[in-house]
Amino acid sequence: MDAAHYIATLECVAPRASAPETYDYAILELAASDNLLAQIYSAMSHERLQWWSLFEGTEWQDAWENGPVLVDLRNAAGFRQQLLSQLESAPLGVVFESELTVETLRQNLAARLCGSQAGAGHLLRFYEPRMIAPLLSALVEQKRQALLVPGCRWYWHDGHGWRGAVAIEDGHCGSWESEPMLVTQQELREAEVYWVAGEACGYADHYAKALTSVESPKHWVFNSLQSARGAGFQKTGHLERWLRLAIQHGADFPRLEPFRSTLSRDDLALTERLTAMESTPEKSHANA
């Protein structure tokens, strides 16, 4: 995998950003928090806040309480400020600016939910803050703009920091019309690699002091995370534990004993293999 390509593309398409000072709307995932809907209702009692389920009129309509909602925050400054801190601690959704009418937004954003594959029953959660940058990076420009233009300016917290994206047609959103869009399986697979690139950027910053001797820390972390995925570790928690092992014992630790033997033990679950490797005394291996 070309670490430089994936990281550079992601940072160009969805660069780091400051927390947004102003925004008009949010797409929030009710399934991400048991209290989110109650918070919205509470805010409505003292602010002019409106919201609509994006599942309305779709095959997922009956499950609206576990789906995305479009929230109009233009007249809800209090809830808007409260939401920012929540977005920094939990993957609840994205916020954005838009010049489109609410009805147009509802129709076009709901249409994007069905754009993941050709068959019925496939849901594209394009508002998932941990995956929106990888998804945008994996799409060709035309598809990328099809997702971005309804919002003009998007902001989200990916678990490491704020990112943002701006539509090319910024300032002319009112003339945009929905067009069919299909995200292919290949693009979804590419998005997974771009997700690794985003995680590598975040972890490289977090573990910067431990990576001072490493050339191109982001690339080094990307390759370490890809090594973990190649060994069968896919969960975020597992990847970070693998990375800590690489920092402690060197990037080639999976090829060294006793790590190699531990990794090959089919009688141990993945978490148990990590735990066993973490108990191995530190040896004098290079970190690069």
Score class of each variant (00 low, 15 high):
175 S>C: 05
145 Q>V: 07
228 A>V: 02
200 A>G: 08
242 W>Q: 06
229 R>H: 08
170 D>M: 10
190 E>Q: 15
124 L>D: 11
166 V>R: 10
176 W>G: 08
204 A>F: 03
231 A>R: 06
222 F>P: 04
154 W>I: 07
169 E>F: 05
165 A>G: 06
212 T>Y: 01
213 S>Q: 14
203 Y>K: 13
131 M>K: 13
179 E>S: 14
239 L>D: 03
241 R>S: 14
243 L>Y: 00
131 M>T: 07
138 A>W: 05
187 E>A: 14
192 E>T: 13
150 P>F: 03
188 L>D: 07
161 G>R: 03
239 L>Y: 05
203 Y>V: 04
238 H>Q: 15
141 E>W: 03
194 Y>G: 05
157 H>D: 00
220 W>H: 02
180 P>Y: 08
156 W>A: 03
158 D>Q: 06
153 R>P: 01
141 E>Q: 09
131 M>C: 13
162 W>R: 02
124 L>A: 14
200 A>E: 06
175 S>Q: 14
231 A>I: 03
157 H>T: 07
240 E>I: 15
121 G>K: 05
139 L>F: 00
141 E>S: 10
173 C>M: 11
183 V>R: 01
242 W>R: 09
130 R>M: 10
207 Y>C: 05
167 A>Y: 02
238 H>D: 13
195 W>T: 02
135 L>N: 03
159 G>V: 11
149 V>R: 11
199 E>G: 00
145 Q>F: 04
148 L>Q: 00
163 R>W: 07
197 A>P: 10
160 H>M: 11
226 Q>V: 13
172 H>Y: 13
169 E>D: 14
124 L>C: 12
